[in-house]
């Protein structure tokens, strides 16, 4: 399936759940989800080092409960595409995404993952991970600071708690 279409469908699905009877159950589950994103330890390049730095004593991602990096994608909720996604790596990234259980989210960390970044015109690099996996939050930067990553994760938290908001921003623009 086309990844853009996939992302739109996922966003619409998240927004539509507001109308259903189970809304308060969903809200409760979402409360749990937004307070414990467990990222898949999936680092590609420079940004992976900043991702690791965000767990160190100074920045301490764990204050939000987001620090439990899981080695197996089966136990992860969040994939942080941190670094340059090359053409050789792209199928593997997609497979890791497929292996993760629903509900799952993707953050593109760094310009390489957002849209190719410095290597956008290289023959070997996928210009933007959103042609491989549907991305929820883009964090520009080269590499983004650990605080930027935290801001991105808090941004994702807002999106999950209020899925309509993310769509709204797009339509207003």
């Amino acid at each position: 399936m086309d990844v853009r279409r996939e992302k739109e469908l996922r966003d619409a699905e998240a927004a539509a759940e507001k109308n259903i009877l189970l809304t308060s159950v969903e809200k409760f589950l979402n409360w749990g989800r937004v307070h414990s994103f467990w990222p898949c330890s999936f680092g590609l390049a420079c940004c992976a080092i900043e991702m690791a730095s965000s767990g160190d004593p100074r920045y301490d991602l764990s204050r939000f409960g987001y620090e439990v990096f899981q080695a197996s994608p089966r136990q992860a909720d969040l994939m942080i595409v941190a670094g340059t996604l090359t053409r050789k790596m792209a199928p593997i990234a997609r497979r890791i995404y497929d292996q993760m259980p629903e509900p799952k989210w993707v953050i593109a960390m760094g310009n390489c993952a957002c849209s190719g970044g410095p290597f956008a015109d290289s023959y070997a690099v996928v210009p933007g991970a959103d042609s491989i996996v549907p991305i929820d939050v883009y964090i520009p930067g080269c590499p983004p600071r650990p605080e930027s990553l935290m801001f991105g994760m808090l941004h994702l938290k807002q999106k999950i708690q209020n899925p309509a908001k993310a769509r709204l921003i797009k339509h207003v623009k």
Partner: peptide, 27 residues
């Protein structure tokens, strides 16, 4: 799996423009 074609990219950038790319080799 992280081949980014850095050597080839150097050929399409001026000498000064390639300096920031060198940081991304051994990051």
């Amino acid at each position: 799996y992280l081949h980014r074609g850095l050597e080839k990219m150097a050929e399409s950038r001026t000498y000064n423009q390639f300096v920031p790319y060198t940081d991304r080799l051994d990051y």
